[in-house]
């Protein structure tokens, strides 16, 4: 299915791997920004950006979470760059069943980078602001893109629950919970 083509402001974060010193400040500030209330707690495991790190291989790759998928991939492609081997997973931001990345540590629900959408808008996403070494840089540009319907974080969470437990089970649980809830009211 094709969406309609529209002009749109496209935001992106560029990554320069050579500039990363592996400090993970990006993870820290991301988790703080998305904490509720904002900044009230710190937890890199809840961050929407992670620095894939292997010191022994001198590998430091900041990746941002992109889309959720229920499908696993074998992740067997290996790339050698300047003599260092990288797994394709090192560059992949997909929230997938193959690994624990970008899932809330308590609920297991997917975490998605929203480029720190805010009102009024932040001048740059927080991870970019925190990266003093400019391994992360932010750009905005006009581009013709296909209109796509973005899922909200809640819808995304529901979708993953459907994938895990099936529609019927989820419906049942929802019905049960709503009932309990209305009883209490």
């Amino acid at each position: 299915m094709k969406g309609e083509l529209t002009k749109k402001k496209v935001k992106r974060i560029k990554v320069d791997l050579d500039k990363c010193n592996g400090c993970r400040a990006c993870e820290l500030v991301c988790s703080a920004f998305h904490a509720k209330p904002r900044y009230s707690s710190i937890n890199p495991a809840r961050s929407r950006i992670r620095v894939v790190t292997d010191e022994i291989n001198d590998e430091y790759v900041p990746i941002r979470s992109t889309d959720y998928t229920k499908a696993a991939c074998d992740g067997r492609r290996v790339y050698t760059i300047k003599g260092k081997e990288y797994s394709e997973c090192s560059f992949c931001g997909t929230v997938c069943p193959t690994r624990d990345l970008f899932k809330d540590p308590d609920s297991g629900l997917p975490l998605k980078c929203d480029l720190c959408e805010d009102d009024p808008p932040q001048k740059e996403p927080l991870c970019v602001q925190a990266c003093s070494l400019n391994a992360l840089t932010y750009e905005e540009m006009e581009e013709e893109v296909e209109e796509e319907k973005k899922l909200s974080e809640m819808e995304l969470g529901l979708k993953s629950l459907v994938d895990r437990y099936g529609v019927e089970k989820l419906k049942d649980s929802l019905a049960r919970i709503s009932k309990k809830h209305s009883c209490r009211d």
Binding site: A32, P37, Y39, S40, S41, I42, N43, R46, P105, Q129
Partner: peptide
């Protein structure tokens, strides 16, 4: 391996102080 929260007493104020410190350290 730890995936728990660290809580901050005065979060917004500390975060603001730290943004400035981080910039100073870098420069």
């Amino acid at each position: 391996r730890g995936t728990k929260e660290i809580n901050i007493a005065h979060p917004a104020e500390l975060f603001d102080v730290c943004i400035k410190l981080r910039k100073k350290i870098a420069e």
